[in-house]
Amino acid sequence: MRNAAKKIYLALIFLFLYAPIAALIVLSFNNSKTRAKWGGFTLKWYQELFKNESIMQALWNTLAIAIISATAATVIGTIASISIQSMKKRTRAIVMGITNIPMLNAEIVTGISLMLLFISLKMRFGFTTILLSHITFNIPYVILNVMPRMRQLNPSIYESALDLGASPLQAFFKVTFPDLLPGILSGFLMAFTMSLDDFIITHFTKGAGIHTLSTKIYTEVRKGIKPEMYSLSTMIFVAVIFLLILVNYTPRDKKDMHKS
């Protein structure tokens, strides 16, 4: 009885979460312009999608920004974590407080604050401004993934590497880095996903001539949803599942799994 109730509850939530996505997937194969009717199976919306140059351009922008910003954030964030760890307690608390600001603040405020900055620096709004913004909100995710690993490190191992004649750089790359790697990887992946998914900050820091997938979808949806959007959703959903399977079934440190 009780187990049945639990199962029904899970099923209802499952339905709530997946019915909209299922609807998008079904509609992407629907050969009828009206949503309420099934007009037979078709793949033409997928063809339309690939023919749509502005959507394809937005896709490339999205991927380029996600890869570059996640990489830059990973480098800056990892170096930052090393230095934060060696700070005095109070300085560390202040720096971590600042680090948390982009995560705790409303995205709309982060977005407009960066917009005001770029305006006053007289920068041209476009790829660069989006990229700088994405690096900024990605860094905290890297730090929050690397810091716990930093804390677990045994400093005497690094020191003994130095005693045995390694240069600081050698000691870092041969001793510290391999230990940090799981944290760095999950930080990178999280930064990558955050960048892919971002709309609000991009909305305020992009110029008129450039789109990422999110801003493109927003513009399209406000004009009225075209069926190509359904095929785009389906493909993104499949890509998400594929990525998650890849992340979850790649053998790595179990401890970090729940963070990604």
Binding site: F14, P20, R35, M229, S233, I241, L244
Partner: peptide, 26 residues
């Protein structure tokens, strides 16, 4: 399974509900 929709693009998730709820929607 229960947190997976989180990774689906936020705009698309919202668009999905528009598709479902509209007067001539699903």
């Amino acid at each position: 399974i229960f947190i997976l929709p989180m990774w689906m693009n936020f705009l698309l998730r919202t668009m999905a509900w528009q598709t479902l709820l509209e007067k001539t929607g699903v």
